[in-house]
Amino acid sequence: MGWIMKRRYVGYLYILPCLIILVILVVYPLYFSFRISLTDFTFGRPFANYIGSENYYQLFKDPIFIQSMVRTIFITIIAVLVEFICGLGSALILSRKFRGQNLIRTLILLPMMISPIVVALIWLLMYQPDFSILNYLIQMFGVDPPMWLTRPPWPIIGVTITEIWEWTPFFTMVCLSGLASLPLEPYEAAVTDGATGWQIFWKITLPLLTPLLLIGLLIRMIDVFRIFDIIYIMTEGGPGDYTSTMSIFVHRTGFIYRHLGMASASSYMMIIVITILTLILIRLLNRVGSQS
């Protein structure tokens, strides 16, 4: 047993339980689903045949899948950008001292605490043309309200607004914690040098916050890319396939059509796209890190 206590091996021993769990819960399912993606496995059929990359080839020929992918990327970019801008803006306002600050901070976090299913149901009612409070408010300005969930392009806008409403508080929280931890010295120096508020924001606040913001962007981007529950409840991917995202496509292919081979292949396509986007952001993060 003496050898096992040697420093170079004992470390491995400590991480072994974690590695075993990781292999069982992450590596094996990934391997299993990849293997399935190379077959024509349909749930309920007794046999699955190896078909190589045929599922992947079929996916690229399927206009519904391609449209779903483009739509998912579009929703991700718009939602994350708007959440970022609104979150940063609200954090800058909330970081100033004012009466009822704590109450406002708590209230602003509420959407994020609600289950996405409930959020989707709330907005589903808000978008109803017959009794929607949203449409009532729009009509007050003398404008005809849109058919939020049924007439293109509004369904995409509708689900993106819902996603933004729910997750903007995440950026608010990230930015607030970042602002609270910023050093005071650069601000004091800037004020002494006569910098304007705008200059202070662009030259000091934003650069110092950037590493934290990029991590927030990364988390949200991965999350929005998998958007499912809101769309499933509000439109089920409709009208037609107009709001079908990649997750909706995977769910439909796997759990309604039972084509688990094809669904696994489309899941892998999701992983590939999201990995590319993540790598770009991580490179950006590293560059910013080395600059600062």
């Binding site: 978008y127 109803q128 058919m147 049924t150 007439r151 409709g238 009208p239």
Partner: peptide
């Protein structure tokens, strides 16, 4: 049909 009927399920 109602304007929003393209989004109506059974309950609506």
């Amino acid at each position: 049909m109602p304007e929003g009927a393209a989004g109506y399920g059974a309950n609506e």
